[in-house]
Amino acid sequence: MSLLTPSTDPPAVPTSPGPWTTDGAPRPAIGGGGESASLEADRVSAWFGSHKVLEQVSLHMAARQVTALIGPSGCGKSTFLRILNRMHETTQGAGLSGEVRLNGVDIYAPGGRVTETRRRIGMVFQKPNPFPAMSIAENVTAGLKMTGLKPSRSDRDALVESCLQRAGLWNEVRDRLTHPGGALSGGQQQRLCIARSLAVNPDILLMDEPCSALDPTSTRYIEETIAELREDVTIVIVTHNMQQAARVSQHCAFFLAAAGTPGAIVEAGPTTQIFNEPSDPRTSDYVHGRFG
């Protein structure tokens, strides 16, 4: 029996080479924005101090696809996600090995600008975190200021509208763009955070359990947003919600950490395959809710 019917989008008809093989055709790393990009983790291990939390994780996150990272708590999914845009190193004592390649270029290569990497690989966090002192419109354009871009006033207004449109929030806030972002509901705040991430024109959007603090209606809005966004932004999402993973993703990676060992990928592949005919019995147990 098919547990779930995955998203209606055709599964994995990649324009780039196969989703679980190495992308052999690196494209220039410059530019970006609107252009689809792929992300490749190559034998990534991670530590906090002397404690190893990730072991040799390799994963291809294909362009124009949503990749879901699933697995029980404490298996290193969020750590892995934070490694993908260099947020991992902001934690004290954090270390890593391996490579993360954005369109074939290692984001940890010496001489690379970390701020530019983070601009190109945006992130939405578990807890909505708009800047409370800024208005809704200022929140959307906050990233532009911080990355040193100064669009003209008309460009800015257009950008605010298009980002809020894409995040599915425009109709709710169009009449109160000058109100503080902190006054919105939790679900609206999270969509505001998505709009804010989109404003700096990222190639990749990482989402760390973006709906876990939200009600079902808000969750549905955000899932609809994700489905639309993947047209031009590659998305990697961490989720604890199996149904959500099945609904929004085309590819899935199952993480697991056995007691006392670092987390690792047990199985990765098209979402249909992971949910309906997983090759590893542990994956089967997890997606069928027998543990985790």
Binding site: T115, R120, M123, A142, C193
Partner: peptide, 8 residues
């Protein structure tokens, strides 16, 4: 973290 993740 929000600011950092935007490339600040």
């Amino acid at each position: 973290e929000a600011a950092l993740a935007l490339g600040a």
